[in-house]
Amino acid sequence: METVLSIQDLSKHFGKIKAVNNLKLDVQKGQVFGMLGPNGSGKTTTLGMLMGVTNPTSGKFLWFGEEPTPQLRRKIGAVLEHPIFYPYLSGQKNLELNAMIKQCPVENIPRVLELVELTERKDDKYKTYSLGMKQRLAIASALLNDPTVLILDEPTNGLDPMGIAEIREIIRKIAANGKTIILASHLLDEVQKVCTHFAILKRGNMIYTGPVDDVGKGSETVEVNADVENFNEVLLTFSGTSSVNRENGVYQVTMRDGFHGKELNKFLFEKGIVVNHLVTKKKSLEKQFLEILSEAH
C-alpha cells in the first residue's frame, strides 16, 4: 500500500484553544477517508494546514512521502468550508484563473463544468449563482487539474437532495478511478455510503480511526414487536438480551455477543408469541459516532 498522506504529531493552537492536538494519521492510496467530529473539533483547521493556508504550531505532514510544496498542492483538488471565487468574474473566467494557477490546460474546463452541470450558466457572474451552484463550481474547480487527491470539506452544504446524491455519485466515480479522497462531513449517512475509512475528532484530539466496514460489527440490535401485554418483560427473560428500549412504538433489543434475531424469534415462538415485526439492524455510523463521542472525554 502506498501512503498518500502521513500526518505526524500535527498541532495548531489559537491562543489557549487547541484546535488540533498532536494529530497522527495516515491515509493510503485509494481510500475514501471520512473526517468526522462535532462543530469546532478541528476538521477545517487540519485541512487548512494540509493545504498550506494555516501554519501549524508544531508537527509536520508529508504528501506522497515528501515535504509539502505549492507544486504538490496543484495536484490536490480542495474545497475548504465555503466556495471561494471572485464574485465579479463569471464561472468560466474563475476556472480559467484557477487553470492558470494550477498550470493546467483550459481545455479541461468544459469537462468539469459538464460534470457539475453548470455549462449553461458558465458565463454568468459568480455572484449571481445560487448556493448550490457555487458549491458545484467549487467542486468543478477542485477537479480541474485531474487531481490525484481530492479534499472536500462539507461539499454538500446547501445542496438539494438531488445535488447531494449527484455529489455522492461524483465522489464514487472519482474513487473508482483509484483516487484518494478526504472528506469532512456532518452527514454521517453520506460518509457511511461513500467512505472506506473514517476518523473522529473531538476538541482537536483524534479519538477513533478505523474502516467503515467495521461499523456494525459486534453486538446487534433487533427491532421487534408483538401484540402481547408486558412484552417488555418477556423480552428481558431471553438469555440473549442485553437491554430493551421502546422507541417509535417498537422494541429495540440489544443482543449479547453471539446472539442474533433468529434465536430471539425462536425463543418467542416457543413461548407462544408470534411477532408482527422483526428487523435485524446493522448499527449505523451515526449511532457508533454518538457512542464514541459520549465515551471520550
Binding site: P70, R74, A78, H82, P87
Partner: peptide, 17 residues
C-alpha cells in the same frame, strides 16, 4: 474580503508568488 488569497494558496500559489 473575498478570501481569495486563501483559495489562491490552496490552488497552488506559494505565498511569495
Amino acid at each position: 474580503s473575498y478570501r481569495t488569497v486563501r483559495q489562491n494558496i490552496i490552488d497552488g500559489l506559494s505565498r511569495a508568488e
